[in-house]
Computed example of a mutant assay.
Amino acid sequence: MQTTDGAIVGTSAFERGVRVAQTAAGRAGVLSTIFSTRTLGLTGALDGASQREYLSGLLIGHEISALQDLLQQRQQQTSLVILVGEPALCERYASALRAYGVARIQIMAQATERGLWQLALGAGLLKTV
């Protein structure tokens, strides 16, 4: 979303960061784009909160780009990505993955709790009903 003064706020700043990671400059690596976060703040294009969102998108975008490069080198494709983690962060990754063309994404809710439950059952710490 853009404010009346042209600043980008919220998820649009995150998406902007993801898109920058996909550019030619982004393909040169994270160091080629990371300082754009500060520049956008100094020029007033992004406010403080938006800078944080932009940087998050930039870093996640670079991470996904590196993964795609690695898979391409190994001549492998991404058929399904399973995300495990805090729900809001998983949603960020899912959004960025979609921007990179990954269609099959699954978020594993409560993976830690379910795993610990299974470990407790397997160790005989809990009685089954």
Results as ranks from 00 to 15, higher is better:
1 M>S: 11
6 G>V: 03
7 A>G: 02
8 I>V: 11
9 V>M: 04
11 T>A: 03
12 S>Y: 07
12 S>Q: 15
13 A>C: 04
17 G>M: 03
18 V>Q: 00
19 R>I: 03
19 R>P: 00
21 A>C: 06
23 T>P: 04
24 A>P: 05
25 A>C: 08
25 A>D: 15
29 G>T: 10
33 T>E: 13
39 T>K: 14
40 L>A: 10
41 G>L: 12
41 G>A: 08
41 G>R: 02
42 L>M: 09
43 T>H: 01
45 A>P: 01
47 D>P: 03
48 G>T: 10
52 R>P: 00
54 Y>M: 00
56 S>P: 02
60 I>Q: 03
61 G>Y: 00
64 I>F: 07
65 S>Y: 09
66 A>S: 15
67 L>T: 09
76 Q>W: 04
77 Q>I: 03
82 I>M: 12
83 L>K: 04
84 V>N: 12
87 P>Y: 10
87 P>T: 02
89 L>I: 07
90 C>K: 07
90 C>H: 07
93 Y>K: 10
93 Y>M: 13
93 Y>D: 00
94 A>P: 05
94 A>T: 04
95 S>P: 03
96 A>I: 06
100 Y>D: 05
102 V>S: 09
107 I>P: 01
111 A>W: 07
114 R>I: 06
119 L>C: 09
119 L>E: 09
119 L>G: 02
119 L>P: 01
120 A>D: 05
120 A>M: 14
122 G>V: 09
122 G>L: 14
123 A>S: 14
123 A>T: 07
124 G>A: 08
126 L>V: 13
127 K>T: 12
